[in-house]
Design a protein around this nucleic acid. Structure first.
Lengths: 342, 342
DNA sequence: CTGAAAGCGCTTACAG
DNA sequence: CTGAAAGCGCTTACAG
């Protein structure tokens, strides 16, 4: 059923020119006589010819595909970042392919080989870790940029959200509302980005002179994690009046657990998230959160990679985009009776 | 920075054999003397050689990558289906790449060219539509299988959930609970799968002799769509006692709209979904729904495609997997006063 | 068991 | 403006 696709040879024969001329007519039309160009175009039309990218890349030692390596395509931040990347890539004649690793390092290395074969010109890593096989003696890295998670094992340019400053803005909001005891749900040694949010949290409290007695809970960033964090917290005697969560999923879990215990958010507790995932506005109460500029992150990262491909070194090693504070109804001033007396 | 990768030539020189022998040592080791094999392996280790897949594919006229073309990677059904596919692909020495079209037909055609260049051996389509450029005279199709959405413009094997039977089981549940007026929210001419759910709905009601006076609302399958559907419905005089939604997102929207109007689910209205997306169990009330066997769908589809690649024709043109009925708390018997008197 | 050679489909100096 | 030829990195009959 699958008839062999037309080759440049077929086109040349039909147009009665050499294959060199066909190649030129396609890629440098101005170097070919108008009449010849016409003959070639006609031949291309009747044969349905498309260049064999495999052969072209082999010959040119370069491809026009970019590979994005993602550990979890279920991440709600992922789709829009990807769309930003695609937009930028397409505008420059590149295509985008996604490799899914499920957090498996070995799988990432497989994709690396794909790159090494010139099947893609560069890569964008969502993983926070370089897919380098320790067994390989020469880990020559193709042009790469990191997104969402900065690299832990190597220095490649990073584009992401300003987690630290975002967190500070959120704490400031909570303090302005009158909160004095704020729990941070979701520190993580696994995820750099989460840890940075935690740093911002600390800084903002330090500035406000509220450093003491704050609660920090480690959590994996899932809804379930937020839920169990609340359970752990309720074992203590002093409760916070606000929960600042490392992301929206965690916040959703916290709200759920609080509601299940009969509390009302935001009357009894304020809860905030980070990311502004699509569902954030639909939770009840609608979640106050920080919106990641996802499309911009995608575009910026891709633009940087494309620059790298052209030999343009990135200006910054770390490009941090500011998130927008989205105030919705999950935050309110605390009950005065529950504030510490000063 | 990027030193040229080692080639088969480098390995041959170092091992003091011909490139033919190196190739054999790698791909048909039993045809090479043990001592030679050792020399080659050592040379491979010191050079860090990996085959250039580009050259290999060009020469062999076949690649070991499969391309999945998806219109929307944000679809909550997507991740697990993909995981199923990857599992099956890897077990057979294939890798999986994802192409994202954002519903753009032109983009799908780009990916098709990728296939035509032997950069991938086959494709899996999530789009419900064949990426065929009408301008191309010879739409030679690479081995392909469709998933989630059956094809509208061509016949390729399809693997999906049994939407029709699933819907029937759901209606039966509702009827058993005592419901007599059930609204179907989410028929669609755009999405085959949704329309099939609607057909199942009709059939189940016909069997129960409840065909008359049922409400059908068209909707796009989004949360927002579910929401507005409820608003439209409340303009009518006769309300249903149960809402059977075409998917979980729609159901979430319906619940939200109902709650916003001061109703309680399931006391005042029962609501059901379809898919069992990850959040379904966390909604309040937890959603009664049909669970798509996502991993199995992915594995089955990939196995079929791999079979196609080996020249094994699929047994069935349509493989339908049964969804599991997941009963949670969004369904209850209706208020007797609101039942039609018979 | 091993090597020399052809060829996959292309691009691009090099001549003319 | 156009063509003949080399070569990208591989695999695989074909000889030996």
């Amino acid at each position: 059923m699958t008839k062999a696709p037309a080759t440049i040879e077929d086109v040349a024969r039909l147009a009665e020119v050499s294959i060199a001329t066909v190649s030129r007519a396609i890629h440098m039309p101005e170097k070919v006589a108008a009449s010849t160009r016409q003959k070639v175009n006609r031949a291309i039309a009747v044969t349905g010819y498309t260049v064999n990218a495999m052969a072209r890349n082999l010959r040119m030692g370069r491809s026009n595909m970019i590979l994005a390596i993602a550990p979890d395509i279920g991440d709600p931040n992922f789709p829009n970042i990807l769309i930003g990347m695609e937009t930028e890539a397409r505008a420059n004649g590149y295509g985008l392919l996604i490799g899914h690793t499920q957090g498996d390092h070995g799988r990432a290395i497989e994709y690396q080989k794909f790159l090494n074969s010139n099947q893609a010109a560069g890569m964008i890593l969502f993983t926070g870790i370089l897919p380098v096989d320790a067994a390989l003696p020469l880990p020559r890295l193709p042009p790469s940029v990191a997104v969402i998670e900065p690299m832990v094992n190597g220095a490649i340019p990073f584009v992401g959200v300003d987690d630290r400053m975002g967190a500070r803005r959120m704490v400031d909001l909570l303090i302005t509302q009158g909160h004095r005891r704020i729990a941070f749900i979701g520190d993580s040694r696994e995820r750099q980005a989460h840890h940075r949010r935690r740093i911002g949290f600390d800084e903002a409290l330090a500035v406000a002179g509220l450093r003491d007695g704050q609660t920090i809970l480690d959590t994996d960033g899932t809804l379930e994690g937020g839920r169990t964090a609340v359970e752990r917290l309720f074992l203590r005697d002093t409760l916070p009046t606000a929960f600042m969560c490392v992301n929206d999923q965690t916040a959703a879990g916290v709200v759920l657990a609080l509601t299940a215990r009969g509390y009302d958010v935001p009357r009894d507790f304020s809860v905030t998230g980070f990311d502004d995932i699509p569902q954030a506005g639909f939770l009840s109460p609608a979640l106050t959160t920080l919106r990641q500029p996802r499309i911009a992150i995608g575009r910026t990262a891709m633009a940087m990679l494309l620059g790298l491909l052209d030999g343009v070194p990135p200006e910054l090693n770390e490009t941090l985009l500011m998130p927008d504070l989205i105030v919705r109804s999950s935050v309110a001033p605390p009950d005065p009776d529950r504030l510490p007396r000063s």
